[in-house]
């Protein structure tokens, strides 16, 4: 499969979204809303749930399964309000000693006037910086598209894992081609995707991610949910055994190496 085909697969609206993963992996999910600064973003959701018997905090991007639902959630493009909501929930997780699990599925943060006016850069930067302060286990899962700073806002963790057909990149292959190849009609997006090395396997080989989770047939069985559930359970147990200082030290070094 060519790399751009992987991109198309990662963007497929039929893929499970964050709610599908939450409903199939966790129990008793309670969604929590609001940035406490005057808004709530539908493109980023979060809440608390049980993973087996372990309480956890979940945050992540929400994509719809069709055009209508995607219009409601802005195609998973988060606004400052969404990142501030997630930040609030992650800080709360830290306070109550709950591990944090983030699901990444976004083309990038929303580029708009209001985004800029409300400080999208600041909101993402704060999510990144604060992620180095939480003394609870933190795991990121890229389930579809991991695009740019909007993805990285939830991408600083003890472990970053990717589904087999997800992609993760500095920007879309279309954007990359437009900027670097002056490509106006999208004719060089395939070439860009090849050069960008954005598939799970590429990124694993480059040491950007820690594990690839096989998908099986995403829509017809529980294979992927079991895989993710088992992985999270196991890793949270392992990470919970580390003392807080070691946990923070390891997380720092994980990103210091780049």
């Amino acid at each position: 499969m060519g790399r751009f085909e992987k991109v198309e697969k990662a963007r497929d609206l039929k893929r499970p979204n964050i709610y599908d993963y939450i409903n199939n992996i966790f129990d008793d999910f309670i969604e929590l809303k609001g940035d406490r600064c005057g808004g709530d973003d539908s493109a980023i959701i979060g809440g608390i749930a049980f993973l087996n018997n372990q309480p956890v905090t979940i945050v992540g991007h929400l994509k719809g399964h069709d055009l209508n639902s995607n219009l409601k959630v802005n195609f998973g493009m988060g606004s400052p309000s969404g990142y501030r909501k997630a930040l609030r929930l992650m800080q709360q997780a830290n306070k109550f000693n709950r591990p944090i699990i983030s699901f990444i599925d976004t083309p990038g943060a929303y580029p708009g006037v209001e985004s800029e006016q409300k400080g999208i850069g600041e909101a993402i930067a704060k999510c990144i910086e604060d992620s180095f302060n939480y003394t609870v286990p933190k795991i990121s899962i890229i389930i579809g598209e991991g695009g740019s700073g909007g993805a990285l806002g939830f991408g600083v963790s003890d472990q970053v894992v990717m589904l087999e057909n997800a992609v993760y990149s500095i920007l879309s292959p279309e954007g990359f081609a437009a900027i670097l190849f002056k490509d106006k009609d999208g004719s060089r997006k395939e070439e860009a995707a090849e050069l960008m090395k954005l598939t799970a396997l590429d990124l694993f080989e480059q040491g950007i991610i820690d594990k690839i989770i096989p998908e099986g047939d995403l829509n017809s069985n529980n294979f992927v949910y079991d895989k993710i559930g088992n992985h999270l359970t196991q890793e949270i147990q392992t990470l919970s055994r580390l003392d807080k200082k070691t946990l923070l030290h390891n997380r720092y070094e994980r990103f210091r190496k780049y």
Binding site: I128, D130, F132, L152, V156, I170, K197, L203, F255
Partner: peptide, 23 residues
């Protein structure tokens, strides 16, 4: 912005620098 020619490694710099700032 990020140095596009270095792809995902440029994105990782944002995490690295902010990690140092957190400390």
């Amino acid at each position: 912005g990020a140095r596009m020619q270095e792809g995902i490694f440029s994105l990782m710099q944002m995490a690295k620098v902010n990690g140092a700032l957190a400390r």
